[in-house]
Write a protein that binds this DNA or RNA. Structure first.
Length: 474
DNA sequence: TACTTCGGCGCC
DNA sequence: AAAGGGCGCCGAAGTA
């Protein structure tokens, strides 16, 4: 790997970025240490109890008979052996090194209470050991003046690195601030309640909407994509959901749109192809129980349109007629050959150029070189430049906060969002400042940004926690 | 005991 | 030619 900032501007961005992030790191984010300790203890008890129930179950006895004193219910290797070799369940997949796969998707294919319990335990262990304990390891004591008296509490100071990622994104560690649970609301609540605002403050998280898609458009300038981005009454994720599930616009619910976005559009942008797309989109119907407004399952809906099942690639390598596989293949063809033809052509040109001269130069002035695969060549400059929009904004925000003598503290960053700890009385000023910096000043500084830039803001109550964040208008 | 690799899984 | 881009952390298992 031999990637480097190439222009003076790129060098400055890393330099000033490192300084701004050092300040963020020094500020730190407040932790409710009593809640943290209490919750770790509670989960500990729960996990131990569940593991006890494994031990006393029928499968647990089989396990102990097989492994004797080496029995370890936390071992995936042992779990795979018991399920697939001893009990004879069908093993749908193997790992790279030839062991039985035991990930969530694989285990979900086995309808057995023992396996379900294993999955529950695994989720709880992840929550406790990776996230709660990860925070606990890094907490340092701190004092906070609550307006009348000093109270004790804790801070963590997640590290933000600018020199580790090949795309020139950032990474975070100790603890990793980039991967705290958010999608599963039950887990998100357990973790995010531990992050609290300083006394009299609110936590404020501001993120760029679809920044990677917008930055990608600055590279390829596909006219269809530009019109999607310039006209907020249109919505490409909704449109693709309509195509993949053969629905009229009014049948696209929030969940179905989610499937279009995360089951088709984004994976296609990252380089996934129709066989994998069809499989996931098909599975999503069952997992998320997708139905028409009248309650008809989308499986039945698709069947009424002549699609009988997912289907499998035939001997000739082609999907069978009337299968979902064949349908998604044609949606994909249309997606790249007609709808986003210019995007597609840009990708081919971009890859060809790399193969001819051996390097690529991003919009923000960074060179990537060395051996790269097609999907890497296409994705690196987009991922890097999208993050650099955030980094530029964070640097400018930090400088303005200091210049104006504000008490707002920037406390974290998550690729396309900035988390701040804001005194209640500065909320309006901070939101206005962030909006100007992130959507107006950024575009003035970087003329290559030829699409509208939009942000969203979420705010907690005064003295609230990160789980309580709610979207606000700015 | 210390280190590495693997599989798994959380996020954008 | 490869088959979905980028991270960091955990525990198990293997190795030094």
């Amino acid at each position: 790997m031999n990637n480097l900032p190439h222009t003076e501007e790129a060098y400055d961005l890393l330099h000033q970025g490192a300084i701004a992030l050092a300040q963020v790191e020094a500020n730190g984010i407040r932790i409710d240490t009593e809640y943290l300790d209490r919750t770790m203890e509670r989960l500990d008890t729960k996990i131990k109890r569940l593991q006890g129930s494994l031990r006393s179950s029928t499968v647990g006895k089989v396990w102990e008979t097989y492994y004797k004193e080496r029995t370890n219910f936390d071992s995936n290797t042992q779990l795979g052996t018991i399920l697939f070799d001893v009990l004879g369940h069908e093993c749908p997949a193997e790992t790279a090194s030839g062991k039985h796969k035991t990930d969530e998707k694989t285990l979900a294919t086995i309808n057995h209470p023992f396996v379900k319990r294993c999955m529950t335990i695994r989720k709880m262990q992840k929550t406790r050991n990776t996230f709660l304990q990860g925070i606990h390891h890094e907490v340092v004591p701190a004092k906070f003046f609550n307006g009348s008296v000093w109270e004790t509490g804790g801070l963590i100071h997640p590290v933000f690195n600018l020199h580790l990622v090949k795309t020139f994104r950032s990474s975070s560690d100790s603890p990793n601030f980039h991967n705290f649970p958010v999608r599963d609301p039950k887990i998100a609540k357990i973790i995010r309640q531990a992050f609290i605002a300083r006394p009299g403050h609110r936590l404020v998280e501001i993120d760029y909407s679809g920044i990677e898609v917008r930055v990608a458009a600055c590279y390829h300038k596909d006219p269809r994509m530009l019109s999607y981005l310039n006209d907020n009454s249109t919505d490409m994720h909704r449109d693709m959901a309509m195509e993949v599930y053969l629905l009229p616009q009014e049948e696209v619910t929030k969940t179905i749109r989610y499937c279009g976005k995360n089951g088709f559009v984004f994976p296609e942008f990252y380089g996934s192809t129709y066989t994998e797309r069809a499989r996931e989109l098909w599975g999503m119907i069952g997992e998320l129980n997708l139905t028409l407004e009248d309650g008809t399952s989308l499986y039945d809906h698709l069947e009424s349109h002549g699609i009988r099942g997912l289907g499998e690639l035939g001997e000739n390598g082609r999907p069978p007629r009337g299968s979902f596989l064949a349908h998604i293949q044609s949606v994909e063809n249309d997606f790249w050959e007609r709808r986003f033809r210019v995007y597609h052509q840009w990708r081919n040109r971009w890859v060809k150029q790399y193969r001819e001269r051996g390097w690529i130069l991003s919009k923000t002035g960074f060179i990537c070189q060395g051996y790269m695969l097609r999907n890497e060549i296409i994705n690196y400059p987009i991922q890097g430049s999208a993050f650099h929009c955030l980094l530029w904004s964070l640097i400018r925000l930090q400088k303005e906060i200091k210049r104006r003598g504000m008490k707002t503290l920037l406390v974290g960053q998550i690729h396309d969002s900035i988390v701040a700890d804001v005194p209640d009385e500065e909320l309006g000023d901070y939101l206005a400042l962030a909006k100007k910096v992130m959507t107006v000043d950024l575009k003035k500084a970087w003329k290559w940004i030829c699409v509208p830039i939009e942000i969203e803001a979420e705010v907690t109550p005064v003295d609230g926690n990160w789980y309580q964040k709610k979207e606000v208008e700015i």
